[in-house]
């Protein structure tokens, strides 16, 4: 019982760190798609007197990644319903050109203002419409969530690391007598603390497996049944095989740091 408790006290904080790391990875990936989605979904509306090439837009501002002309015929036919053919031709002639401009990144509203100004510097361009208001608030919320999550993960990692080191100290205390006897008979540090390394490695592997299993479960069972669009759409990026390696590597690194910090904190156990 005590044995299980001792291990849990080590595995749980380690799992907390690993969960944090995995959340971080998944969050980065899903928001990457989200960011891309926002970017691709977002366009500026430009009204110009004459046709403008994409290259021309791009010389005005390098953030413009695509331009799509809105079909004028459609507009005209809507406006000029029931009007004679010659009149509609006249309307077409008088009608300016409309473009949807795509941007290459998720930009702040101040940057959007710059683009607007840059575009307007061309006399050919009559109007530029951005949707700055809603764009700005969703971007801010997005940045805030991202920042909070990162802060939380860092905080949790630090707290968990302390717990891990505390548990290591308890172990070291439990093995103090044996380590001392071994020291008297000339055992080098590595041999003396071998048991700590062994237990820590086993727990590191266990924690990695548990966290991987949890995410695999979420990916293959829960995500599909959750009915949450975001989960269903991003099922593929929820957990990747390489993540298992990252988790195992991180947990081994953490336990090595923890064991070393405890073992070297007080080299020769004095009487």
């Amino acid at each position: 019982m005590k044995f299980i408790k001792n291990h849990l006290m080590f595995i749980l904080p380690l799992m907390a760190i690993l969960l944090g790391i995995e959340f971080f990875l998944v969050f980065d990936r899903t928001t990457d798609t989200y960011e891309k989605g926002l970017k691709e979904g977002y366009t500026m509306l430009v009204v110009s007197k004459k046709p403008v090439e994409l290259a021309t837009f791009q010389t005005l501002n390098r953030h413009i990644s695509s331009s799509e002309q809105i079909a004028r015929d459609g507009i005209v036919s809507e406006v000029a319903k029931g009007v004679g053919k010659s009149t509609s031709a006249a309307i077409i002639k008088a009608l300016p050109y409309f473009y949807n401009l795509g941007l290459d990144a998720y930009l702040k509203s101040s940057e959007l203002e710059t683009i607007k100004k840059d575009l307007k510097s061309d006399t050919n361009i009559k109007r530029v419409e951005t949707f700055g208001g809603s764009y700005n608030s969703s971007y801010r919320l997005f940045a805030f969530i991202k920042f909070t999550l990162k802060l939380f993960i860092v905080f949790m990692t630090v707290v968990s690391l302390f717990l891990i080191i505390k548990q290591m100290e308890i172990w070291k205390y439990a093995h103090k007598e044996r380590m001392r006897v071994m020291e008297i008979f000339g055992a080098p540090l590595m041999l003396r603390s071998g048991i700590l390394f062994k237990v820590a490695f086993v727990d590191a592997i266990l924690a990695s497996i548990l966290v991987s299993a949890l995410f695999l479960y979420v990916k293959f069972y829960w995500a599909a049944q959750s009915g949450i669009d975001m989960m269903v759409e991003n099922q593929e990026v929820l957990f990747r095989v390489t993540d298992m390696g990252i988790l195992l590597g991180s947990s081994l690194l953490i336990v090595i740091v923890a064991v070393y910090s405890v073992v070297f904190s007080n080299k020769g156990v004095e009487e």
């Binding site: 007598e177 044996r178 001392r180 006897v181 008297i184 008979f185 000339g186 055992a187 080098p188």
Partner: peptide
């Protein structure tokens, strides 16, 4: 390191035995 090596050539006996009780 030298001290560790020296100790491997010593046999030390204590009043309270200092055995490892879990072995």
């Amino acid at each position: 390191r030298k001290l560790q090596e020296l100790r491997t050539h010593m046999g030390i006996i204590f009043q309270d035995y200092k055995l490892v009780n879990e072995w």
